[in-house]
Design a protein around this nucleic acid. Structure first.
Lengths: 223, 223
DNA sequence: GGCTCCCCTTGATGCAAATCAAGGCTTGCC
DNA sequence: GGCAAGCCTTGATTTGCATCAAGGGGAGCC
């Protein structure tokens, strides 16, 4: 049910390298590190840069005035984030773990896009890719049960960050819950159910390292 | 909390008129009418056209295999819908009432976008506008209470389709519920509560004609 | 080692919204 | 007029998830 938001990876690599090749002009992608829970930018702040995760993971979220939080997306190694069509960020972005990001000045980028049809094209592709993810996530948040949501989450992470057959989650249960519109207890219970059903296993003592043992059964749970 | 997705109206008018002015070439916007509940296009179908509502209203939705439905957006007079970055539609679109739409062949549009930076720019703006709406809606679906959702819905409709101080809803309670991730009974109860609180009134016998009597109070309910 | 902090799981209880159910109103058709 | 179908409201009951609560295990630090 989830769209492959990595489909644009090749595009993004090209996009970044184009920016890089343009560094003779004013576009100089520079790298920066953030500690876990460090804020990269805040909702409403002027959007000065566009970012790419080099290593680590980032959460983008919105808050209600009383503290309820909805995470709109997780950004993993290779993902770009933070480009807005307006001039203000629409999410707060935080490093989930120690994270390295590459950043590019945005003003110059917008300027380049006007003259370079390829970059404009890439920009549209990435915006459309974000839109597809949001559309799928609306269906999940509006209509799926807790078990379906967790199953969908595991399948998404399996697709996006599995290395050597293991899903090494960078985020805690609370982050997952705020992404899925649930509580951390409900996420924990759903994972326990899937564990007992033999759909997944935990690697060692870590509850963050998950091995999918029965993808067909998991996929059947995600309507 | 909702972004003004009509912000792009001026853009869209320009966009359409550009398409119109290009009609010497292969782009000929033609008009078409749909009866209530008629399908305009289905999810997964190849996206051949881009649409604009001339009169009436349209719902775009996704279905789960067991029939659960999530409406992603309502399209009202003036709104454009149905442009996809890929080649398949990601929603099913249906006329809510008797609806007239203008349509433009998509292949030709994509072709024009490559050569015309202005159209490419408009396309990005509209995609970004849809993305903003989806992002706000994720927060609503993931974290707001039923009363907050209905309040947000009323404020959105007030902004988008109020004429003469009256919100004339084209859609039934079930549509509203499927847009807000609720049931029709819960929507009905929330509206009754707002009615009893004096926040809104119904015009005549119609439960579809709503007058907002206390916008500040309503806005305070939508966190 | 022993402390604190964080994260996670599990159990008990509560509650908001879903479900089940009934009835009223309107519209359109025979 | 009489009937059926669609839409909406309201009440009773159920339920899935939230909330409240307790405890275990690992990591970092003194």
């Amino acid at each position: 049910m989830f769209v492959n938001i990595n489909a644009g990876l090749a595009n993004r690599a090209r996009f970044l390298s184009q920016l890089g090749s343009l560094s003779k002009s004013e576009i100089t992608p520079s790298e920066f590190k953030y500690h876990r829970s460090a804020e990269i930018f805040g909702e409403g702040e002027p959007a000065e840069y566009v970012y790419q995760v080099v290593e680590g993971a980032v959460r983008s979220y919105k808050l209600l005035s009383d503290g309820r939080r909805q995470i709109g997306a997780f950004h993993l190694a290779g993902d770009m984030f933070g480009f807005e069509n307006g001039d203000a960020h629409r999410f707060t972005a935080e490093a989930i773990v120690e994270t390295a990001v590459r950043l590019v000045k945005r003003v110059s980028l917008a300027h380049v896009a006007e003259n370079d049809a390829t970059i404009a094209h890439d920009l549209l592709n990435m915006t459309a890719s974000n839109l597809r993810h949001a559309e799928d996530h609306m269906l999940l948040l509006g209509r799926k049960t807790s078990l379906e949501r967790v199953a969908a989450f595991l399948l998404e992470m399996d697709r996006r960050l599995t290395a050597a057959g293991v899903i090494a989650l960078p985020m805690c249960r609370r982050d997952i819950a705020d992404y899925l519109g649930l509580t951390l207890e409900t996420v924990s219970r759903a994972l326990s159910i899937l564990h007992h059903k033999g759909v997944l296993g935990f690697l060692g003592q870590s509850q963050r390292q998950i091995v999918l043992l029965d993808r067909p059964k998991l996929a059947a749970l995600d309507l």
